[in-house]
Design a binder for these strands. Sequence first.
DNA 1: CTGAAAGCGCTTACAG
DNA 2: CTGAAAGCGCTTACAG
Lengths: 374, 374
Amino acid sequence: MQLVDRFGQRYPSHLRASNIEGKPLSAPSPPVPLAKPDSKRRSSGRTTLTDVAKAAGVSPITASRALRGERGVAQELVQRVKAAAEQLGYVPDPAARALASQRSVQVPVLVPLLSNALFVDVLESVHRTLFPHGYQALIGVTHYDPLEEEQLLRTYLAHRPAGLLVTGFDRTEASRHLIATSGVPCVHLMEMTPAPGVFCVGFSQQDAGHGMTAHLLSRGYKTIAFVAAQLDPRTMQRAEGYRRCLREAGLYDPRLELLSPQPSSIRLGAELLEEVLRTRPGVDAVFFCNDDLAQGGLLAAQRLGVAVPGRVAIAGFNDLAGSDQMLPPLTTVRTPRSAIGEASAQMLLSLMRGEVPVKNSVNLGFELTVRGST
Amino acid sequence: MQLVDRFGQRYPSHLRASNIEGKPLSAPSPPVPLAKPDSKRRSSGRTTLTDVAKAAGVSPITASRALRGERGVAQELVQRVKAAAEQLGYVPDPAARALASQRSVQVPVLVPLLSNALFVDVLESVHRTLFPHGYQALIGVTHYDPLEEEQLLRTYLAHRPAGLLVTGFDRTEASRHLIATSGVPCVHLMEMTPAPGVFCVGFSQQDAGHGMTAHLLSRGYKTIAFVAAQLDPRTMQRAEGYRRCLREAGLYDPRLELLSPQPSSIRLGAELLEEVLRTRPGVDAVFFCNDDLAQGGLLAAQRLGVAVPGRVAIAGFNDLAGSDQMLPPLTTVRTPRSAIGEASAQMLLSLMRGEVPVKNSVNLGFELTVRGST
DNA sequence: CTGAAAGCGCTTACAG
DNA sequence: CTGAAAGCGCTTACAG
C-alpha cells in the first residue's frame, strides 16, 4: 500500500525511518490547504488523523490511541504522535469521532429557566468545569414543563450525548424511561433523593425551608407567612419544610400561605407583600421562597413606610445579587449553586470515564445568612 | 444486491411493489432492538435512514432528499418517505450528517459573561429562535478577553459549526481572520458598524449614551458624572456618546468620569456612588453605564440619606430586572436584547440557507425610559 | 504493543 | 426525477 501525503510525496506506510528523522514534522504546512482538483474528492483540506499518523510514521489507529491517551502504546510513539499533532495543528473531528464511537462530547443541561440567576450560575459552572475536558454543555430550557422536558430529552438523546444533567426528579414516566434506557450517564441537580442507582448533587430543599422558619421562630416571630411563586417542586419542598417546622411549634396555619403560580419576579414580590399586609394583618414575618420576591417585598415595604423588621420581618432564599445591598440587608439562605454545577460536572466526568463514584448523592448543604431584615 | 432487514427478511432492493402495499410500514417495530450476534457488527440498534428507505421502498439517497425537503423528489415518494420515518420514529444522526456534509447544526454564541442578565437574555432568545429549526446554540464565554475568544473560536470552528454569533467587533486580528476564512456565516451582536460584508444586529451604543446625557441636560442638570465599570468596548462607546453630548453643550470635564475596570455589580455601584459624592461634591447627576451599578447607587443614596433626584439624579442603562421597582424608580435606557437575539438568529438562519439578507446591519434602536430618579 | 479491515450513518458528485 | 458508488474522519473488533 502506498500513501500520498499532501505534498505529493509517495512512500510505503511502513517506511518509518524517514519520519523518525523528523523530516515530515519540520516541513512547513502550507498556509492554504491545497485543494486537489481530483474528481470524486471531497476533502475539506483539514488536517486529519491520517496526516498526523503519516507524519509520526505510525498507523492511524495507533495515532488515535496515542492521542486519546489509551494505555498500551509505546511511550516513544505517543510522544512522536503528539508532537506531530501539535506541529500540524491537528484538531480531532468531533463528528467523525461521534459517529465511530457512538458517543459525542455533548452534555445537555436541562434547567427550568434562564431568567432565574440560580440556573444561570449552575449552567455557567457546569460549562466551566466540562469545557477544559473537551465536553460541550448544551442549553435546554424546560420552562418547568415536564412535557417540554420530555421533548427535549428525545431530541438530545438522539444526538448520543456523552452525559446528561437534569434538574430535580419531577418528570414524566416516559422521561424517566428515556433516561434509564439510553445508557447515558445522568446526574440530577438541586435535590436529594433516597432512590438507589440515581446520581444527584444538591441539598435538601425541605431542610433549608425548615431552617429558615426555625430561625424566624428563634427571633420571636409567631405569625410567619410563607409566600411563594412559580410553585415548582423545589419551592413546594421548601414549603413542606416551613410547614413541618411550624407544626412542630404548634403554630401552623394554612391561611398563612400565599401561593401564586405566576413566575417569580421582583415586581410580583412587591404585589404579594402588599397582599399579605392587607389580607393577613397579624403577620409579623414573611418567608419568601426566592430572593427576587423578597427584594420586591422589601422595596414595597419601604414604599409603603412599613418598618422592616419592626413591623414585619422579611426573609428570602438563594442569596441572589443585591440582597446584601438592600435596606435593610436581606436575611436569606445561601445556596451552593456554583458548587452544585461544579460537583455535578465532576461526578458526570467520572461517570463518563466509566468509573463508579464513591457516593451516589452529594449533599452540598446550605447556609443561613442572617442580615438586618429579620 | 440483496438487503437484509432487521427481521431477517431478504428481498431485492428494487422490489418496491411489496412496500407500496404498506406491509413493511405496518410491521410492528420490536420494542427492543434485536442485537444481532453477527461478528463485526457494530450496529447501535438505532433506526437508520436505510431502514426508512427500505420501508418506503426507495433508495437511501432519495429518502435523504425527501426528508431534507430537497426539491426534485416526486411528491408521492416524499409522502411515503415521511410516513415511513414517522412510523419508525426515525431521527437523523447529527454526527453522520455533520461528517458527510461537513456542516453541523451547532451555532456557538460567544458572549462576554453569563453573569450579566443582558447576555443571558440574548442567549436565551437566540436559543429559542434557533432550536425549532434544528440548530443548537452553544455557550461560549469570553470573559471580555480577546485571547480567550480567539481560543474559543479555534475550538468551535473545528466543530464545523453551521453558523456563528459573536459579540461586538473588538477582537484579535487572528480571530477576525479565523472567522473570515472559515466560511461559516457570522452575525455580530450588540453594535453597529459601517464595515461592508459584515453582518450585525444591535443598536448604536454611542447614540444611546448621547441620548441619556441629553435627557439629563434637558432636565437641567449641569454637572453630570459618568460612572462605569468593566470598561468593555460597548461601555466605552456609551462614554463617547456622553462626551460628545457634553462637549456639544460646552460642559465636558474629564474629571467627571469615574471609570473602574472591576466587574459591574450592585455592590460596586454603591461604592462608586459614595466615591462620586465624596470626591466630586458638585455633581448633580450620575449616569451609570449599567443598571446594576445604578441600582447599587440608588440603594447607597438611600442608605446615606441623599435625596434622589433632589440632591443627585441617577440614571442607568439596560433596564434590568428591578429597576422599575427601585425607590425612586430608575431612569434608564431600555435595550432590545431579546429582539437582538431573535433578529440575529433570523439573519443567521437566512445566511445558513445560503440567502443574501436584504440588509447587512439591523439597527434595533433603544428607548429612553424616564422614571423618577431623574 | 501495533495494524489492516470494516464500519458508524449520512451526503456529495456523477450518471442516467 | 432517481440511484449505485464513494467518501466524510474517525474507532471498534480482530488478529497477530
